[in-house]
């Protein structure tokens, strides 16, 4: 199990680092500042939708959020 996870993580890191040497200067980030480019354009909506997923699926968590705990309805 851990071997599979490690292999996938290594593959993803390799893909992510493939273009990691690109440096985009601050004045070139106009499009990155677009509201739709935020990781979570609306935190409250994202939280509400995540709650549906964590309470109706056995596989919650990921992206910096826990799997289970903190609520009676979580799996």
């Amino acid at each position: 199990m851990f071997r599979t996870i490690a292999l996938r993580a290594a593959l993803c890191l390799l893909l992510a680092s493939a273009s990691g040497c690109v440096v985009v200067a601050a004045h070139e980030r106009e499009y990155l500042a677009d509201p739709t480019m935020a990781a979570q354009p609306d935190p409250l909506e994202a939280r509400s939708r995540r709650k549906v997923h964590t309470s109706r699926e056995g596989a919650g968590g990921g992206g910096g959020t826990r799997s289970g705990g903190g609520c009676a309805c979580g799996n």
Binding site: A9, L32, G61, G63, G64
Partner: peptide
């Protein structure tokens, strides 16, 4: 200037 990627493990 138009692309962001992220990766995480929990």
């Amino acid at each position: 200037p138009t692309t962001v990627a992220s990766l995480g493990y929990d």
